[in-house]
C-alpha cells in the first residue's frame, strides 16, 4: 500500500501531513516533489517519506503519473493519492481504501458532497462542479457528486493503465472518461475536507475559463480515442 502525495511549494504543510500518515498507518508514503524551489523535498524526507524529485515542474498530472510509475515498478497493489497541503483528512484514508482492498471497485474517489458536509464552495466553483457532473454522467453514465476530487484510491489495474495514460494537467475529470473507456468500476466515498493550511489552489480565477474549455475538450476527445 502506497500513499502518494504530489507537492509543489508545500514546505510548511508537507512535513506534518507525512508524519501524521506515518504515525497512524503502516503504509509507505511517497512524495513527488514537482520541481519545488523551496524546502518541500527536505521536509518530506525528514518526515520519513520516499521522495522523488522532478528536475523541473511537470504540472500536477505529470507529477501524479510519476507516482503511478513508481508504484508499478515497485509492485504496489493499491495506491491512495492525497494532497500535501492538509486539505484532505488523513483519517479518511481507510474508508477511501476499503472498496479497493475488498475488490468492490477499481477506483474509489473521496467526495466532499456525500454525507454530512460543512465544506463551503464558492459560487463559480459550484457552477463548474455541476457542469462537470452533468458532463461525466452524460458521457460515461457514472453518477458522481465530486468530479474534481483529488483524493482517491486505485488498484493495480488502474496503476498500470494510468502509468501509460494520464492527463498532464487538470487530470481528475478526464480520469473518469479514461476509466469508462476501460470499463473500470468506480465508487464514491464521503470524505471531509479542510480549508487549506498553506498554499493556494492550483486553479486561478484567470485560468478558470481555460480550465473549463480544456477539460471539456480533452474529455470529449478521450471519448473517441483509441486505447491500447
Amino acid at each position: 500500500m502506497l500513499v502518494a502525495i504530489p507537492a509543489y511549494r508545500e514546505e510548511k504543510s508537507i512535513g506534518p501531513v507525512v508524519a501524521a500518515i506515518k504515525r497512524k498507518f503502516p503504509y509507505d508514503v511517497l512524495v513527488v516533489n514537482d520541481g519545488s524551489p523551496d524546502g518541500t523535498s527536505a521536509a518530506a524526507k525528514r518526515a520519513g517519506a520516499i521522495v522523488l524529485d522532478l528536475p523541473c515542474n511537470l504540472g500536477i498530472g505529470g507529477a501524479v503519473q510519476t507516482a503511478f510509475l513508481f508504484a508499478r515498478e515497485s509492485g504496489y497493489d493499491a495506491l491512495v493519492r492525497i494532497d500535501g497541503d492538509g486539505q484532505h483528512e488523513i483519517d479518511d484514508i481507510p474508508p477511501v481504501l476499503e472498496p479497493i482492498l475488498s475488490g468492490d471497485a477499481d477506483a474509489s474517489i473521496g467526495s466532499r458532497f456525500l454525507g454530512e458536509t460543512e465544506y463551503r464552495v464558492s459560487l463559480p466553483r459550484i457552477f463548474g462542479i455541476r457542469f462537470f457532473r452533468v458532463l461525466v454522467n452524460l458521457i460515461t453514465g457514472y453518477r458522481v457528486t465530486d468530479p474534481t476530487s483529488g483524493f482517491f484510491a486505485i488498484n493495480r489495474r488502474l496503476i498500470e493503465f494510468y502509468s501509460f495514460h494520464y492527463p498532464s494537467d487538470y487530470p481528475e475529470v478526464d480520469a473518469y472518461i479514461l476509466m469508462h473507456r476501460i470499463g473500470a468500476r468506480t465508487m464514491e466515498v464521503p470524505v471531509r475536507m479542510h480549508a487549506r493550511a498553506e498554499g493556494k489552489s492550483s486553479i486561478t480565477t484567470f485560468g478558470a475559463l481555460y480550465y473549463m474549455v480544456k477539460v471539456t475538450f480533452s474529455f470529449l476527445i478521450n471519448a473517441i480515442r483509441r486505447f491500447g
Partner: peptide
C-alpha cells in the same frame, strides 16, 4: 537533500 533548483524559478 534539496534538489538543485534556481530560486528564480
Amino acid at each position: 537533500d534539496t534538489p538543485a533548483t534556481d530560486p528564480g524559478d
